[in-house]
Every structure is written in structure tokens, then in C-alpha cells.
Amino acid sequence: MGDRNEVGGEGLMLTQNWMYDAIIYIYALSLLFYFSDFAQPNRSAKRMGTGLLLFVWGLQTLFLAGKLIEQPAVPLLSVLEFMFLLSWLLVTISLLISLFFKIEYIVFIVNVIGFAVLLLNLFSSPIGEQRLEHWQIVKEILILHVAFAICSFAAFTIGSIFSGMYMYLHRKLKEKQWDDSVRRLPSLEKIDRYANLSIMIGTPLLILSLAVAISSIYMEEKLNLLLDVKVLLTLVAAICYVYYFIKRVSLKHTGYRLARWALLAYTLMVLNFAVNSFSTFHHWIWE
């Protein structure tokens, strides 16, 4: 994936890789169709968007498969690989949602994030291509740590979108603002159920990712790294999500407050992603 960072190459080529370019252009086109449906219900535009998204997914899968054949290692150890895989995961989840559930807006919002991740990847510095392979710990453990993290991040992204939807619809219904978005969104009960399910998947994955990372730190005997800002922030986010479940089970909070809590936890997750520069050992992102 190192060759995809030559922004503004020749003409309309964003990168030196035609497949990466095609993914970005088709993804953008698909989002435009979805946006048309988002702004005003338009089923044919939505169908078109889904078709293009399916094509994007196919290209992304081919791209990843190509990488695997090129270098027979799991493409996870650089920021670019991480982000590309996250984007692929979000596209996969959104396609599954559109296939099995009829939830308006969600596919568009998930893919706006998926596309943003791809674009961030495109405009990030080439120095970011440094891989984590310089770590001496067992490589398999490292891959496991990143894989769990990526999956939990995707699940939390979906969960936070549902939480945001919940807060939006709740406010609209409380304030009696009846409009097209209220008509099209799923019910509060359904949104709450999906948000809970996503967070329920994400939390154990995050804890597993943390556990793997902490055990590897022990193996490396670098205990001082436990006080690293990234480790601490991840711990806080994990605690927030656990607290979310405790409150949920205790039935003391309303759905609205739980949704707010879930969004707060997700903000910590995003912040966690952004503070890599301050981390002593996660500075593989945007150095």
C-alpha cells in the first residue's frame, strides 16, 4: 500500500494505484446516490448506491487479497493497512445491514465514516507507513491485538451511530417535531436494541485487545508502558462501556442517558486514535 500516497499525481489520479483510485471514485459516487436518498427518499438512487457500494466492497476485497498475495503477512501492521481494513469492515457491515435489515440512514452514515477513513488514509503522511514490525514481541500477538482493536472500533462506530440516532429521534418525538426523518428512522426501541447489540460486541473485543496488549507488554518486560497515554485512555473508554452495561442492567437510566453515555465513550475512542503522537510506542500513526 506504500504506493498509494502520491496525492495529486497525474490528472485525475489521486494515487499511483488505479485500483485505490477506482475505489475512492466509485465510493464517492455511491455516497452521492445515498446522499440523494438521505436528503429526500429516492429508492432508485438508493438501489444504485447499494450496487456501487457492492462494487467498492469487491474492489477493496481484491485489493486486500492482492496485498496478501504480494506479502504473505496479515495487512494490519501499518496505519494505512489498519485504516484500509477498518474502511473495508465498515463497508462490509453496512452491506450486511442493508441486506438483512431495513434501517434508513444507517448505511449512508456508516459509509460517510468509512469514506472519511479512506480519505484520511490518503492524505496522511507517507512517514506513517512505518510498520509495527520493529516490535520484538511475538508478531501473532500483535496482529491479534490490532485485529481485536479494529473490530471493536467498527462495532463502536456502528453503536455510536445508533446512539446518535436514538438521541435525535428521542428529541424529535419529545418536542413533537414530526418530519420526514422521524417517519423514516426505525423506532426508538429498535435503535436502542441495535446500539446495545453493537456495543455488546465491541466491548469484549476491546477488552480482549487490551488484554492481549497488556500481556505482550509483560512479556517484553516494559511495565512503564502501562502508564502510556494511549493505554490509559483505552482503559478509560473500556471502563465507560462497562459502566454503560451496568447502568443498562440496573434499569436506572433512560435510553436517552444511555445513548449519551455511549457517545461519550466513543468520543474517548476517537480521541484515543488521535493521541498516538503523544504515545511512547503507538507513534506509527501520522508521525
Binding site: 427518499p41 429516492n42 429508492r43 429521534l169 422521524v182 417517519r183 426505525p186 426501541e189 429498535k190
Partner: peptide, 27 residues
């Protein structure tokens, strides 16, 4: 009917109540 939402929204008070309930509970 398939490509527009012309037949979807309730146009009587009693159906509007049902539609509102569906926004909260789903079913």
C-alpha cells in the same frame, strides 16, 4: 407506489396515533 412514499404516511388521527406509537415501540 414503489418508488415514492405516497401511500406510507397516515392521514387519519387514529392512524397517526398508531404511526407515532410505531416510532416509539416499533411493534
Amino acid at each position: 407506489h414503489a418508488e415514492t412514499t405516497i401511500g406510507e404516511a397516515a392521514v387519519s388521527v387514529s392512524y397517526a396515533a398508531v404511526e407515532l406509537g410505531k416510532r416509539i415501540f416499533g411493534q
